[in-house]
């Protein structure tokens, strides 16, 4: 089946991108790896018939947020000698894996106990703009408005934090 093949390709690309982010020494390489992960996640969303989220993932995440991060990384002009020295990096990786692996295995076991269902691609009536919009504006109206306030607060906060300080008279 072509859907399973596509899932395997996207899953491997996403995991490679995540590992590249964690292993890369310079944040620029890590950011490019993260962009790869996000684009392959968009492919996975399209396999799950989430059309609107597929488009939003490409536009908002891979387009807007990652370009903002890349812009800031380039803006700060980080050279090799500015990077923190991480001599004990591999020990930290090992310790992290030792702590995280049991939790991951436990959650994998829990997920495998779920009732199985084929992820066949659905046609109209699932995941489009209309279906998501109906649910969003009927049942999730209050969280939607709260998110708009959150965005306003973060906008003002970013301007106050990163803006120029006024010189005291």
């Amino acid at each position: 089946m072509i859907a399973e093949l596509l899932f395997s390709v996207f899953a491997v690309l996403a995991i490679i991108g995540g590992l590249g982010l964690v292993l890369a020494r310079h944040p620029m390489n890590g950011a490019i790896c993260l962009v790869m992960t996000m684009i392959s996640l968009a492919g996975l969303y399209s396999l799950l018939s989430a059309k609107l989220i597929f488009v939003l993932q490409l536009i908002v995440y891979a387009g807007a947020i990652m370009s903002l991060i890349l812009f800031i990384i380039m803006f700060l002009n980080i050279r090799k000698e500015d990077l923190p020295k991480e001599e004990w990096r591999w020990a930290y990786y090992l310790g992290g894996i030792v702590v995280i692996a049991p939790v991951g295995l436990l959650m994998t076991k829990a997920v495998k106990a779920l009732p199985g269902s084929e992820a066949s691609i659905m046609g109209n009536g699932f995941g489009g703009v209309k279906e998501v919009g109906v649910v969003l504006f009927r049942e999730w109206l209050l969280p939607f408005e709260i998110v708009s306030i959150l965005l306003l607060v973060s906008l003002v906060g970013a301007v106050v934090l990163a803006g120029k300080r006024r010189v005291e008279q």
């Binding site: 995540g18 964690v22 923190p84 990786y93 995280i100």
Partner: peptide
């Protein structure tokens, strides 16, 4: 798997951007 990789990055790296 992706979530665990993310936790690993937060725990073991010291670069702010990473």
């Amino acid at each position: 798997i992706l979530f665990c990789i993310g936790i690993l990055g937060v725990v073991s790296r010291r670069n702010v951007f990473t």
